[in-house]
């Protein structure tokens, strides 16, 4: 049963990401991207990461894709010629070949050198028993072991905000 659900979501992810890459209209690509984000959120739920699934939908599908669609519609882009025989005719062929090489390499690394390590304390039963849920368990690690990186992310977000304002401003006084 779990396998069937995995193949449904995995197939949806593959189809939507292929649609993202091949569609001519950027708006269609953005909508395919939303499908990919929702499917990845579903896979996170299947992996027992409920907090990340919620964050995925809120941050990616909610904030980032709205930003993308806003910019696409703001800029009035002409649909890109999918079959362009411009000055870079070989580019497409080499792009596909290199992408396949990357996929095969990643798959080989996964098959060969499989990551092994000591099992941690966050077993599915232990998370519920000791913390009460996935969100509490993430918080217990995030606010203790990773407190300094967590504070640094606030600096990153502040820089992004200031940078976006400065870059899109017409003229700086």
């Amino acid at each position: 049963m779990e396998l069937i659900i995995f193949y449904i979501f995995g197939g949806a992810a593959l189809l939507a990401s292929l649609g993202l890459v091949v569609s001519k209209n950027p708006v269609h690509s953005a909508l395919f991207m939303v499908v990919v984000f929702f499917v990845v959120a579903a896979l996170f739920v299947m992996l027992g990461a409920e907090f990340l699934a919620a964050a995925q939908i809120l941050v990616y599908a909610g904030a980032i894709m709205v930003l993308f669609l806003f910019v696409i519609m703001l800029l009035r882009l002409q649909p890109e010629e999918l079959r362009n025989t411009s000055r870079h005719a070989f580019q497409r062929f080499f792009g596909v070949a290199l992408g396949l090489v990357i996929a095969v390499q990643v798959a080989l690394i996964i098959k060969r050198g499989f990551i092994k390590g000591a099992s941690g304390r966050f077993t599915p039963e232990g998370v519920v028993r000791d913390f009460g849920g996935n969100t509490e368990a993430v918080a217990a690690v995030l606010f203790t072991d990773y407190l300094f990186p967590f504070e640094l992310t606030s600096a990153i977000l502040l820089m992004a905000m200031v940078g976006a304002v400065v870059l899109t401003k017409k003229e700086l006084k």
Partner: peptide
């Protein structure tokens, strides 16, 4: 699945 999605993304960036 993650490797395949990464490959599709890489092809998109290159193509």
């Amino acid at each position: 699945l993650s490797a395949i999605l990464f490959g599709i993304g890489a092809i998109g960036v290159l193509v």
